[in-house]
Amino acid sequence: MLPLALALHVLAASPPATAGAVQDPEIEVQRPSPALWRLDWRAPLGCPTREQIIAEIRSYLPTLDGPTTSARPVELQLDATLGRDAEGGGYRARVELRDSRGRSARVIRSESCRELADAVALIGAVTLDPLLAARTIHTELPAPPPTQAEDGPQPPPPPQPPTDEVLDTPAAATDARSDVNARSDVDARSDVDARSDVNARSDVDARTSQPGSLGIHLAPSDDDEGPARRPRVGLGIHGLGGFGPVLAGFGGVGGSFAVFASRWRAQLEGGWWAPRTLRLDDGAAGEIQAWRLGARACFVPTPGAVELPLCAGAEGGQVLARGLAPTTEIESATQPWAALSLGPGLRWPILSRLALSADLSLVLPVVRGAFVIGERELTSLTPVGVNVGLGVELRI
């Protein structure tokens, strides 16, 4: 199984201590007492929940307290995001560990989200208390089969009678020398292999024995995406609908450029409201359309696998009106537009680089104005509006 194999791999990286030996303080595994830690877990529906991950970590470490929910500093921050793997199918989990020494992260993949969840729990347990986790795993392993030494004393093998082989021919002497040379070559290669193995183990020991508050870290993988809080870029396109900028409902299209991280989002956006015809009782008509540009700043809670940005911003643009027949005097007019906006949104990453988006905004204009035909008012800027956007976002 993946969790057990991962545990053995992590634990095998450090050489065992022998009884009575003096441990080098630089390679001694240290752990906080008590361990103060925090877990951030995101996974699709149908995969193990955060509570199940905590329970599995504590199955390895029965004396461990639960993760803290306060904002105080912790010895270990474990962040894991599990989602669909866009490359090979199945699932992928990005695991990041942060402590006083820094951070380390890697991506692991599997066909089963249950298997990835088990691996994340095992990584957390081994990092928090490698010694107790090793003892727990050891008690769960089957006992090795008894060796001959355990079955009882064995009689020594009978001595081989000495042989006195006489090399009485040149061919026999040549064969003997060839055999000696072959054995020498094998011995030389064995010495080289042994030295290479010792050097390899020394390199592993050097990499895994760096001092730190917790002692064990994940090596970055080739597809490590960098720090979880490293900003990313999002390019969005969405359909628009709502009430405003005048006293009527409109539809349109828009786009956005965003820079975001795990807890914040900054976004530039633009939109165009498609032309709509408004009429007076006497048949006089006008066509209204508008465009806008805006900026928003958001705080982004992330319950589970979805992001729920809470945004505030401002926008500006222009409302354009044009008279239509049977209006006798057809003219065009414009009105500047400026407003504040406030509202929630949703981003649901369905792939590593693609997310569904939804936004709802309350619009509070800061300008007033009206459009008239002759002496009669066709429409005016709304005192309050509502915008709704649905679309997709490409993430880079």
Rank of each mutant, 00 (worst) to 15 (best):
A228E: 03
I373P: 00
A134C: 01
A93E: 12
A176D: 13
I137A: 11
G239C: 01
F371M: 11
V386S: 10
A171M: 12
V180R: 15
A285T: 01
M1W: 11
L6Q: 08
G255V: 13
R368F: 13
A7R: 04
L342N: 08
D168L: 12
G215M: 10
W41K: 06
T139I: 13
T174A: 15
H138R: 15
A7Y: 06
P144W: 06
A80K: 02
P336F: 14
A284S: 06
R42K: 11
R84H: 08
A297L: 13
T163S: 08
E87W: 15
L116F: 05
L97M: 05
R195W: 04
S184G: 15
T69H: 12
E287K: 06
R135H: 15
L97A: 01
A370R: 13
W37R: 03
H9N: 13
E225H: 09
L308V: 12
I216C: 04
L308S: 05
G20I: 01
L128V: 02
V166S: 09
P245F: 05
P245M: 04
G345S: 01
P73N: 05
R347W: 08
V367P: 02
A7D: 03
A21L: 04
R189E: 00
N181A: 14
R84D: 08
H217S: 11
I54H: 07
A321M: 11
D151R: 15
L278K: 07
L247Q: 14
A143T: 04
A171H: 14
L78V: 00
E140I: 11
Q289V: 03
S196D: 08
Q77I: 09
A284N: 09
L342K: 08
V388D: 09
L346C: 10
E96K: 01
D164P: 00
P158R: 03
P25W: 04
E287M: 01
V300M: 08
T208C: 10
V246F: 09
P157D: 07
D65C: 08
A266N: 02
A338K: 15
Q30P: 04
L78Q: 07
S357L: 15
T63A: 12
S100M: 11
A12C: 02
V372E: 15
I396A: 13
A370C: 09
G46S: 04
D164E: 08
G83Q: 00
A188G: 01
D359F: 15
V204I: 13
G283F: 08
L293M: 11
A121D: 07
A134L: 00
G90K: 02
Q289R: 10
F299G: 12
E269R: 03
T147F: 07
G343S: 01
G88F: 14
P211E: 06
L240Y: 09
S332G: 12
V363C: 10
A119S: 05
G316W: 09
R135K: 15
G391W: 13
R106Q: 07
A258K: 10
T69N: 11
D175I: 14
D65N: 11
A258E: 13
D179Y: 12
F299V: 13
G226T: 05
V74T: 09
D359R: 14
F257V: 14
V363P: 08
L293K: 09
P211A: 03
P365C: 09
R292N: 12
G249C: 11
G20R: 06
L308D: 05
L381G: 06
L141G: 04
W291I: 10
V10H: 06
A5P: 00
I216D: 03
L218S: 02
